[in-house]
């Protein structure tokens, strides 16, 4: 055997080992979908993860309606008709959470529900900024002026909910 053949055999052998290992490591559904190596070269099974296996957490008004139909009707008739229950009642600071029914165990609801009475929550929409839109256009009833207050001047230190009924969008 001459000196040129030996490395060649080595190279062919290595390539064979590499291809065999690759056959076991790369899943069968890893491919270029529609022949598109540029944008669709992927594990096709992963689409199922994002489509079906990832859980829906915000369930919307219909979920809350199972028990709180009265509140839903009240809000639907108010200026807050377009505001989801979950916008205000889903808590990111766990110290404020609390719901009389264990939603996670009984309903499979995964978020923390609670009541946030702080001014900070209302200020997100209602504190006065010169460049905030002056009109509120998403209500079916028509265009209304958007209520904004200067938090420095408008009863500082008080909680908004002491005077305002947020579900009815009126005074208590």
């Amino acid at each position: 055997m001459n000196h040129a053949w030996r490395p060649l055999i080595l190279i062919v052998g290595l390539a064979a080992v590499l291809l065999t290992v690759r056959m076991f490591l790369v899943p069968s559904d890893f491919m270029a979908k529609n022949g598109d190596y540029k944008y669709q070269w992927h594990r096709v099974g992963n689409e199922k993860f994002w489509r079906d296996e990832f859980t829906v957490k915000h369930k919307g008004r219909e979920f809350c309606k199972q028990c709180h139909e009265d509140k839903i009707e009240l809000v639907a008739d108010s200026g807050h008709a377009r505001v989801q229950c979950e916008n205000c009642h889903v808590m990111f600071n766990p110290e404020k959470k609390g719901h009389p029914v264990d939603l996670k165990a009984d309903f499979g609801y995964l978020l923390d529900i609670g009541i946030d009475r702080s001014r900070e929550l209302c200020k997100r929409c209602h504190s006065k900024l010169p460049y905030r839109p002056k009109e509120f256009t998403s209500l079916t009833k028509g265009i209304k002026p958007f209520n904004m207050i200067d938090p420095q001047e408008h009863n500082p230190g008080e909680e908004c909910v002491d005077c305002h009924d947020v579900h009815r969008t009126g005074f208590k």
Partner: peptide
């Protein structure tokens, strides 16, 4: 962002679309 692929594939809207009160 996935456009909330798990929601839009089920006929729901993306979470951010649902949460926006201003349309």
């Amino acid at each position: 962002c996935t456009f909330c692929y798990h929601r839009i594939s089920k006929g729901l809207k993306s979470a951010c679309v649902d949460a926006c009160a201003f349309g």
